[in-house]
Design a protein around this nucleic acid. Sequence first.
DNA 1: GTCTATATGATGATAGAC
DNA 2: GTCTATCATCATATAGAC
Lengths: 205, 205
Amino acid sequence: MNTASERASVTRRRILDVAARQFRALGYAGVGLRGIAAEAGMKAGSLYYHFDSKEDIVAAVLEIGIDLVHDAVAEAVRSAEGTQSAEAVLRTAITRHLYAFFKWSDYTSANVRIFGQVPEGIRDANLPARRRYEKLWDEILERFQSEGLAREGIDVHATRSFLLGAMNAMPEWFDSERGDIDTLARKYADIVLHGIVEPGDERTA
Amino acid sequence: MNTASERASVTRRRILDVAARQFRALGYAGVGLRGIAAEAGMKAGSLYYHFDSKEDIVAAVLEIGIDLVHDAVAEAVRSAEGTQSAEAVLRTAITRHLYAFFKWSDYTSANVRIFGQVPEGIRDANLPARRRYEKLWDEILERFQSEGLAREGIDVHATRSFLLGAMNAMPEWFDSERGDIDTLARKYADIVLHGIVEPGDERTA
DNA sequence: GTCTATATGATGATAGAC
DNA sequence: GTCTATCATCATATAGAC
């Protein structure tokens, strides 16, 4: 790679960083190319050297948003799968998801928030990445059933949707000044693994 | 009430129904007054007979979104509080929340999706209603602790955020053709109450 | 109550200078 | 690579006829 295209890549990434942050905060239609350009240090027309359209920009943001969190969780799961228990793998996956979500939260949060607002073609293009990530979580949860650890009646699909929904809502209220991700991940894992009720004879409902 | 103002109220409500549906799908900035007016069977200028501004419309949608689900859950909780167990109350609350969320999902989903996108003044105006609803859930969860039913280390605030986040994500994937709300509510309650892992000697993580 | 007409400004996108 | 200038279209909001 020569210097020119390297620098082009850096600029491209800076534009996407800005776009992700603004899409997350303002929604798809709430973000204007003039606003993105201003925060990236250029004029609106200059964006078209790096991207073909606003849709092109948002498509890139959506894809990165899923890929970042997928790779973070998949890497941890693949390396732990042979040696660690299903419970340990789930705890690691939850921790990685929350870390990724918090760290690159602009891209992943933008994906969660604006996915339903973008033009249909952009949504369709992002669907395979989403399905792939959901499948990863289904495999993590299915181990509990194949190893006979799951309570009867557990629905993997409902459990995955429940857990991802809970985790994805985290950036809306979590304050990193008042708590840390590891502690939160442990609390979330505790709930989904064992629930809030002390086991015993209280099953009177 | 005379006939004129009654009909005005009906029209006002029809406008809000349309606005809630569009805000939910397209985000705050993605909705235009022309689009709302068209679907409500009038021209954009006519909206100003019923509302002062676009902000006025979205403020009403946000408020209704919280109030509907709050009243549905609060009514069930208050009537069951003296006679039913903490677990039964939680199960009822989850069922009511999911029903309300599904039934009036345009208003409540719009609130969840666009709350972060509206002008700051509108957000601030909706905050008391949100806080009130969160407090209701905290009280439901605190009963487990005050009655000694909760596992040690349970964090009410984290649990409430976890549970509300999970439930609020439901409209994005739930298909009423393939499942019913009661079954889903039971699964969600089972997870948050007892977790996915069969109690026993598997605590090796 | 709803209409038309309009004021004023922002939007995505393009063309061509530098 | 970034700029300026521009186009056509859209936005919210208002005024006044009916």
